[in-house]
Amino acid sequence: MNLYASLLRTGVPAAVGWLVAVALRHGLDLDASAVTGVLTPIATFIYYGVFRFAEEHLSPQFGWLLGYTKLADYPIR
């Protein structure tokens, strides 16, 4: 389950970041690949940060917006 949770909580923000970058790109008159290359990690970072903060400080249910409500747990070996 840890692998599943960690993959979802990484993949969902990355996909949302890409979608936001693609959507924003259509309103800008710039090179498409350059804009997407810059905006995707920025949008991903902001999306993850906002909902991780909300999950920790408001309600654990905000975890669904990261793909999974349970934090990935990495046991020490």
Rank of each mutant, 00 (worst) to 15 (best):
M1I: 14
N2P: 07
N2V: 05
L3I: 14
Y4C: 02
A5Q: 13
L7V: 10
L7Q: 11
L8S: 04
L8N: 07
T10S: 07
G11A: 09
G11P: 03
G11L: 07
G11I: 12
V12M: 12
V12E: 05
V12N: 03
V12Q: 09
P13G: 11
P13S: 05
A14H: 01
A15R: 04
V16L: 01
G17I: 10
G17D: 01
W18Y: 08
W18F: 05
W18R: 09
W18D: 00
L19A: 15
L19R: 10
L19H: 15
V20S: 01
V20I: 11
V22D: 03
V22P: 09
V22Q: 13
V22E: 07
A23N: 00
A23K: 00
L24N: 15
L24E: 08
L24G: 14
G27M: 03
G27K: 03
L28K: 01
L28R: 12
L28W: 13
D29K: 10
D29H: 07
D29V: 02
L30E: 11
L30S: 14
L30K: 04
L30P: 03
L30T: 13
D31A: 04
D31T: 04
D31P: 04
A32G: 06
A32S: 10
A32W: 06
A32R: 02
S33F: 01
A34N: 10
A34F: 09
A34Y: 07
T36S: 02
T36W: 00
G37N: 14
G37D: 11
G37K: 01
G37T: 04
G37M: 02
V38N: 00
L39C: 11
L39W: 04
L39N: 05
T40V: 06
T40N: 00
T40I: 04
P41D: 01
I42N: 06
A43Y: 00
A43D: 00
T44G: 08
F45C: 02
F45A: 14
F45D: 08
I46F: 08
I46Q: 00
I46V: 11
I46G: 02
Y47E: 00
Y48I: 06
Y48V: 11
G49I: 11
V50L: 08
F51E: 03
F51V: 00
F53I: 15
F53Y: 15
A54N: 05
A54R: 01
E55I: 13
E56I: 06
E56Y: 14
E56S: 14
H57V: 04
H57S: 10
H57T: 11
H57R: 15
L58D: 05
P60T: 05
P60W: 06
P60V: 05
P60C: 05
Q61N: 05
Q61C: 03
F62K: 12
F62E: 07
G63L: 09
W64I: 13
W64F: 08
W64R: 07
L65W: 08
L65K: 02
L65T: 10
L66Y: 03
G67D: 08
G67T: 07
G67N: 13
G67H: 05
Y68K: 08
Y68N: 13
Y68H: 12
Y68W: 11
T69S: 13
K70C: 06
K70W: 14
K70I: 10
L71T: 05
L71Y: 11
L71A: 09
A72I: 05
A72K: 10
A72Y: 02
D73Y: 12
Y74R: 05
P75N: 06
I76Y: 13
I76E: 15
R77S: 12
